[in-house]
Design a protein around this nucleic acid. Structure first.
Length: 802
RNA sequence: GCGGGUGUGGUGGAAUUGGCAGACACGCCAGAUUUAGGUUCUGGUGCCGCAAGCAUGCAGGUUCAAGUCCUGUCACCCGCACCA
């Protein structure tokens, strides 16, 4: 009997589909378990070997849970809106919907060939109007609750995509997707108030089981800081409010800086004597890309506002005001007090513009370098704060400012509101009309979905308008409120919209009255285990937590957090250890691997490749080892013993392996779970045969990893009723996980001198006596004084002698 | 600068609470089977050796015992970053 992976795998994939064994039930007596992977973007390149790493891992969990008697939901769908599809459509003059359809078909057949136990009856597609109807519906709820608003503002503009980007989509000053330069552009944009949830997005991380690095990255991104807002009066008459985390250093504030975009500049225009110079600086700053502007080690630049100065509220001294691009308009108040003695940036600026540097915390040499590491220092030159520690001074100055009515404690976040409109075609239309009389009016919910109209050209425009803007028939409409003339919003939603709630749709994917029924939402509750990439930590993962919290607040979902447990897989690199990419020529095509070695081997290899959470290089040689393992399993059929049960000599091996495989799956240790199965295989090889009962257990243990070949062996050997995937996960007995006789090490002064075979429950005295009887040991300790004797049960004895 | 992480054979990687470093696999060496190659099977394989020894980035420390704990240090990776 030869192992023919092609025939076997096709056969079982068809069988699973026909019987629907992996379909989840919304009404089951069994406990529920919801496993989730990030649904793929169906790109034109097809499946990447990285995809199956995550899918297989959770497939193993899902399959194990079914064997453990759970009603498991392991769904799949398509996150299909997005730019690559649109760009391909433009280039090849096909409709994006056609491209999407084709790509999905390819992905689907590729995924099917891997034998992942997805519930295909719940397949969803974000570009399906029946799906995006509900994406639009949620947007309308956000709008109605004041969390979606339109605002004229400076936004990130990708010069190549010709489209705005959220802050989360700008990486190192370039577009996250295409790597092109990002510049600033003032545009009227739809925004979502994610900032309203900033604190809760931090706090509720305590409710969930996420890896530390994910939590840390989200907290870091949200960027909470505590400090104070302080009003400085100015010679222009009005006040200038700043934010600082170091109000204790207020006496050392010798000048102020406002960002180039700060509104006071226009306000003071008639008072400023060097307006030309200021305007020139503003223009320069606006022209710079994010990349240039945030370049580190760049020399400080700026222009003094000649004609207006400020008063330090505690020293009463008049201090100059500058504009400089080192102050950001979008953080704090867009204005700072500069304390050059204790801030590196302020110090550099002060040195360049020859401004006074006043030490207010003792301990540094502030004329020669900024003294910033001063959290434990003592205040000087600081009036009422003199002699206090920094901590005390912070408290006291805030009390003082509050009392005087010129300042107060303030918490600030780096997180900014989410820029939610895109000037592209292939996305969900934003269901809002603009009426001259009534303003922004939501499309009535009864009119959803607001379908994407067919357009002749999807080309993005240089003037920053969506291609939809040319569709006069569609754009010109009537106001749902007053019936007057109105225009539709022509921007579309960003790619992240559909994925912000998709896991809820899986619970009840065909519901036409709600995004999911209350019963379904209650039954499935939180996603129990969600695996996905680290690259989504501050994008999809944060966005979807935000939407979910909003839905929770308005009573639409029963839990405050969407995902109970999150894990993250490492990347699969090319054989050369570099990231797989076409340009590097190190891409491995999963189709070829499945074709040559089979899905079971591919799955095993991807799990065996290394620590699941770390990246690992692909190895063509390594995969052969897994294929050998599958064949060794297959060949067990040739040596079936007449005996029954688990033979005594293999009892410990089996119980140990059942324990280890089960535990390792729960702890993302797929590699060592497979190693344990291989080790047991070696034991079976030593035994020369396998009993039917042993084969039964081995087959169930291996099934989550290699589902096809195990089903085939199960059927061929008639190991039991039904399929393997319908059996029960085996249990182990703790007492049988340890051999009766074990080998322990004998150390003298910490060095191993002998090994000893003893009964597992040997006493300390017996173990030591046996140890001393060893020639090598007695030679070592003869004539020496025994200082200490240590016995670690089951491991070793150590004799300390001098 | 801030935050998270990694460093172990020729390679990928294993090592609950500190308790025999190198599980499992790849590769390599030798042998068997085969007309030959591949496949398969058996044995060997950290380093240096006659022995004693030496080995988890480096240097110290704690301990009967350290890959694991502590102090210092170097290198690399990831995320954020003129965030006041």
């Amino acid at each position: 009997m030869k192992y023919d992976h092609k025939q076997i795998e096709k056969k079982w994939q068809d069988k699973w589909e026909e019987t629907g064994v992996f379909h989840a039930s919304n009404s089951s007596d069994k406990p529920k378990y919801y496993t989730l992977i990030e649904f793929p973007y169906p790109s034109g390149q097809g499946l990447h070997v990285g995809h199956p790493r995550s899918y297989t891992a959770l497939d193993i969990v899902a399959r194990k849970r079914r064997l453990q008697g759970y009603n498991v939901l392991y769904p799949i769908g398509w996150d299909a809106f997005g730019l690559p599809t649109e760009n391909f459509a433009i280039k090849n003059h096909v409709h994006p919907a056609e491209v999407t359809k084709k790509n999905i078909a390819r992905f689907k057949s590729q995924l099917r060939s891997l034998g992942i136990s997805f519930d295909w009856s719940r397949e969803i597609n974000t570009t399906d109007p029946e799906y995006y109807k509900w994406t639009q519906w949620i947007f309308l709820q956000l709008f109605k609750h004041g969390l979606a608003y339109k605002k004229e503002m400076s936004v990130n503009w990708c010069t190549s995509c010709k489209c705005v980007l959220a802050n989360e989509e700008v990486v190192n000053g370039v577009c996250e997707r295409c790597g092109s330069e990002v510049i600033h552009r003032v545009k009227s944009q739809w925004m979502l108030k994610i900032t309203e949830y900033a604190q809760r997005l931090i706090d509720d991380l305590e409710l969930v089981d996420y890896p530390e690095r994910v939590k840390a990255q989200q907290i870091n991104w949200i960027g909470r800081s505590t400090g104070a807002e302080v009003d400085f009066s100015t010679t222009a008459g009005d006040k200038l409010t700043i934010y600082t985390t170091r109000p204790d250093t207020l006496y050392g504030a010798t000048y102020m800086v406002v960002s180039p975009e700060h509104p006071v500049i226009e306000k003071w225009a008639d008072k400023l004597k060097n307006m030309d110079e200021i305007r020139a600086y503003q223009v320069e700053a606006a022209k710079k890309s994010d990349f240039e502007r945030t370049e580190v080690a760049k020399e400080k630049t700026g222009v003094r506002l000649d004609g207006v100065s400020a008063i330090n509220p505690v020293t009463g001294k008049e201090i100059p005001i500058f504009i400089s691009d080192y102050v950001l308009v979008s953080y704090g108040t867009g204005a700072i007090m500069a304390v050059p003695a204790h801030d590196t940036r302020d110090w550099e600026f002060a040195k360049k513009f020859d401004l006074p540097i006043i030490e207010v915390v003792k301990g540094g040499d502030v004329q020669n370098e900024p003294f910033t590491d001063c959290a434990t220092g003592v205040m000087v030159n600081s009036g009422i704060l003199d002699g206090l520690t920094v901590e005390q001074a912070k408290k006291k100055i805030i009390e003082y400012l509050t009392e005087k009515g010129i300042g107060h404690a303030k918490v600030n976040f780096k997180l900014r509101d989410w820029v939610f409109s895109r000037q592209r075609y292939w996305g969900e239309p934003i269901p809002i009309v603009h009426c001259e009389k009534c303003g922004y009016v939501p499309v009535p919910e009864s009119e959803l979905p607001l379908r994407l109209p067919d357009v002749k050209s999807y080309e993005p425009t240089d003037n920053g308008e969506s291609p939809l803007a040319h569709m006069t028939d569609w754009v010109e409409t009537t106001c749902p409120h007053c019936g007057g003339k109105a225009r539709r919003e022509t921007d579309t939603m960003p790619q992240w919209a559909g994925s912000s709630w998709y896991f809820l749709r899986y619970m009840d994917p065909h519901n036409s009255n709600a995004f999911a029924s209350k019963e379904a939402l209650k039954y499935w509750g939180e996603v129990d285990w969600y695996n996905g990439g680290m690259e989504h930590t501050t994008l999809h993962l944060l966005y979807s937590r935000f939407w979910h919290k909003f839905l929770y607040d308005i009573g639409e979902v029963p839990t405050p957090e969407p995902y109970a447990k999150r894990t993250s897989h490492g990347m699969i690199l090319g054989e050369n250890g570099e990231k797989m990419s076409k340009s590097r020529g190190n891409v491995v095509n999963p189709d070829e691997i499945v074709d040559e070695y089979g899905a079971d081997t591919m799955r095993l290899y991807e799990m065996f490749i290394g620590d699941f959470e770390k990246s690992a290089p692909w190895s063509a040689a390594g995969i052969k080892g897994c294929r050998r393992f599958v064949e060794r399993y297959w060949n067990l059929q040739n040596n079936i013993s007449e005996e029954t049960g688990i033979r005594k000599s293999l009892e410990t091996s089996f119980h140990k392996t059942i324990k280890k495989v089960g535990e390792d799956i729960e702890n993302l240790k797929y590699n060592t779970a497979i190693a344990a199965l291989m080790a047991l295989m070696n034991d079976l090889a030593d035994a020369g045969s396998i009993t039917r009962d042993e084969l039964k257990i081995y087959t169930i243990l291996l099934n989550p990893f290699a589902p096809h070949v195990t089903e085939e062996v199960w059927e061929a050997q008639k190991l039991g009723e039904g399929m393997v995937c319908q059996q029960q996960w085996p249990s182990y007995e703790k007492s049988k996980c340890m051999e009766d006789t074990i080998e322990i090490a004998v150390q003298v002064n910490g060095k191993v001198r002998a090994r000893l075979s003893v009964a597992a429950d040997v006493t300390k005295d017996d173990a030591l006596a046996a140890a001393k009887a060893e020639d090598k040991v007695s030679a070592e300790i003869s004539g020496k004084k025994i200082l200490k004797e240590i016995y670690v049960p089951g491991k070793l004895v150590n004799i300390v002698a001098k």
